[in-house]
Every structure is written in structure tokens, then in C-alpha cells.
């Protein structure tokens, strides 16, 4: 049972929720007010939505043996460009204008993702270095767009991305859900998932099987940029403005944590989008739990560091081996089926 790769993250998530429940018995209650759902659990989902989005994009990148450090900057750029366009509109509440703003922001994020993909797939630069460039320059670009100011907007349609409701559920949850479902269906129903896992799992074997990995790698970085863009829109809609300095700060780190917790190895290959979602929710629940427990929210980072360390240690084969050796467990029971003899050296 503990062998399932999502056992530990789910266990940690459930444990945290139980802690919350013990401290605050009303924690699990969800109520319907004005046709909108409210409650701590809904909040966790709502606030976790941007991280889930970025995490989904990052998961595919990591599955190809890559990494994308620039998503935090892309989040900031996306919000900045959308807000800049909105703030220049005569009528911020115009749906058409909002759509143009969203389209511009996402278009730019696609281009930024393509830039990362170009560096990795065409120039052959190590992913961590290639995306470091945009990570550094991207904040500057976001500030350039906002002219160093925090742009506040009043657009109703735009703010709905972050705080609106549809069918009683917060729109941001629905967006994250739709992206999750669509991505899952796309990678598992098409051959994308298989090909991505093959490229990440064994690049040379994939090449000799006729796989053209360049385009695939390019594609995942573009998708990662797009996901970060949507998350950026959500974050700036939530705060009714664009803060080029702080929007999406450290979200790349959180996203990498989320997928690591969710069982996707940083060394590429097998990935689990569901695991990433659980990882993201775990990180968000952690923040909420710290708050519920009445620990000053300044300690969130500390608690996060400890929990992440624990989960990473439990998942580390080297750590497990060392613990096992110390425990001096009895020799493993003989396998119940005969071991097939393999003759090789």
C-alpha cells in the first residue's frame, strides 16, 4: 500500500486536513450563500489554482528531463500586459476589451515559452541555464511593461477570472479543473504522454525508435509558458492589479516542489499530473493549516521547508536504504514465484 507512489503525498494531505479539522471543527463545512460555495476547502482550491496551473505545465517540462525556472517571471509578464491593456481602455468592463487583453497576454506567454523551447531544443542549452535567462530578464520585462508601477484595474470581466463564480464554483477552480482535465485527456488520449515519457526516460532509445524529440521539447515549453500565462492572469485578477515585482515570486519553486511531491522525478520520464495537483494542494493546505493553527503566517515558510524535506526524504531511495539498514529488518521473504534466470554480465 505504501508502495503506491501517491501514498505519502496523499497521506500528508489527509493528515494536514485532519489537523485542521481537530483544531477547527467547522473546517470541512461548505455552505451555499447567494448561489456561491464558501468554506475553507473551497478556499484551498481557489487559492491553489494558479499553482496547480503552473505545476501542470512544469510537470510536462520536467518529464522531458527539463526544467523551467522562468514561469514566475512569465506569470508577472502575463498579468502586467493584460492590466496595461485594460488600464488603457475607456470602458474597462467591456468584454471585448478584456478578451483582447487576455489574448495579448497569452500570446506573449506563448512566444516566451517558444523562446525557452528554442534555447533548449535547438541551441541545446541545458534547460536550467536556458530558462534562467528569462527568469532574470523576465522580471525586468514585466517592470518595463508596468513602468515600475503597480497597475490597478477595475474591469469586472477580468476580475471574474480570479474571483468570479460559475455554477456555484469559483471560476478559478473551474479554469484549473478544465486545464487539468483537458491536459490529462490530451496527453493520455493522444500519444503525447507516451512520447514525452519515452524522451525523458531514455533519450537515446527514443531517438533510435524514430522519435523526433526536438518538436516535442519545444511543445512542452510553449505549453508551460501558456499555463504560467493563465496563472498570471488569475493572480492579477485576484489582486485587481499587476505587481511586476511580486506576482508569481517563487511560484517556479513551489511548482517544482509540487511535482516532486507528486512523484514526478526531476530526472524525467514518468509523470503524474494528478500527483502534481495533489502536491500543489498539499502546499496550499500547508499555508491554510498554519493559519488555522494560529501559528503566525510568517512561519509558513518554515513549516513548508520541514514538510517538503520530510516528503523528499521519504521518497529518496538513498534515505530509505539507510534507514532500512539501520533497522536491521529480517531478510526479505523468498519470492513466491521462481526467479527467471538471466545470463548476462
Amino acid at each position: 500500500m505504501t508502495g503506491h507512489r501517491l501514498f505519502w503525498p496523499i497521506a500528508a494531505l489527509v493528515a494536514l486536513l485532519l489537523v485542521d479539522l481537530a483544531v477547527k471543527p467547522s473546517f470541512f463545512s461548505v455552505e451555499l450563500r447567494d448561489g456561491h460555495l464558501y468554506g475553507s476547502l473551497v478556499d484551498i482550491l481557489r487559492l491553489g489554482a494558479p499553482l496547480i496551473l503552473v505545476g501542470i505545465g512544469m510537470t510536462l517540462v520536467v518529464a522531458t528531463r527539463g526544467i523551467d525556472l522562468s514561469v514566475g517571471s512569465v506569470v508577472a509578464i502575463s498579468g502586467a500586459l493584460a492590466c496595461l491593456h485594460l488600464s488603457g481602455l475607456g470602458d474597462q468592463n467591456s468584454v471585448g476589451g478584456t478578451l483582447v487583453a487576455v489574448a495579448m497576454a497569452l500570446g506573449l506567454c506563448l512566444a516566451l515559452g517558444a523562446w525557452n523551447g528554442f534555447l533548449v531544443a535547438v541551441l541545446g542549452i541545458q534547460p536550467i541555464i536556458a530558462t534562467l535567462i528569462l527568469m532574470v530578464a523576465g522580471r525586468g520585462i514585466a517592470q518595463l511593461i508596468t513602468d515600475g508601477q503597480i497597475i490597478t484595474i477595475t474591469s469586472g470581466p477580468f476580475r471574474a477570472i480570479g474571483s468570479g463564480y460559475l455554477l456555484t464554483l469559483p471560476l478559478s477552480i473551474l479554469i484549473a479543473l478544465v486545464v487539468f482535465v483537458l491536459t490529462s485527456v490530451l496527453v493520455r488520449r493522444s500519444a503525447l504522454g507516451l512520447l514525452i515519457e519515452a524522451v525523458g526516460g531514455n533519450p537515446e532509445a527514443s531517438r533510435l525508435s524514430g522519435l523526433r524529440s526536438g518538436r516535442l521539447i519545444w511543445l512542452v515549453y510553449v505549453f508551460g509558458g501558456l499555463c504560467a500565462g493563465v496563472a498570471g492572469l488569475m493572480i492579477s485578477a485576484n489582486t485587481s492589479g499587476a505587481d511586476a515585482n511580486h506576482a508569481g515570486l517563487w511560484i517556479e519553486l513551489d511548482a517544482i516542489l509540487a511535482l516532486t511531491i507528486g512523484g514526478t522525478q526531476l530526472t524525467g520520464g514518468r509523470f503524474s499530473l494528478g500527483g502534481t495537483v495533489i502536491g500543489a494542494l498539499l502546499i496550499q493546505t500547508l499555508t491554510t493549516t498554519v493559519y488555522t493553527l494560529g501559528i503566525p503566517d510568517t512561519a509558513t515558510l518554515l513549516v513548508k521547508a520541514m514538510v517538503v524535506l520530510l516528503v523528499c526524504l521519504v521518497q529518496s531511495p538513498a534515505f530509505r536504504a539507510k534507514v532500512r539498514r539501520r533497522r536491521k529488518s529480517p531478510p526479505p521473504a523468498p519470492a513466491d514465484r521462481p526467479v527467471k534466470v538471466e545470463v548476462s554480465a
Partner: peptide, 17 residues
């Protein structure tokens, strides 16, 4: 990357605490 990331959160968390 992960180990020092934990360090990043840990040290910053200590600061704020």
C-alpha cells in the same frame, strides 16, 4: 536544486519567525 530550495524556504522562514 531541491535541497537548497528547502534551505531557501527554511532560512527565509527563520527570518520571518
Amino acid at each position: 536544486f531541491i535541497a537548497t530550495l528547502v534551505g531557501l524556504f527554511f532560512a527565509r522562514g527563520l527570518c520571518l519567525t
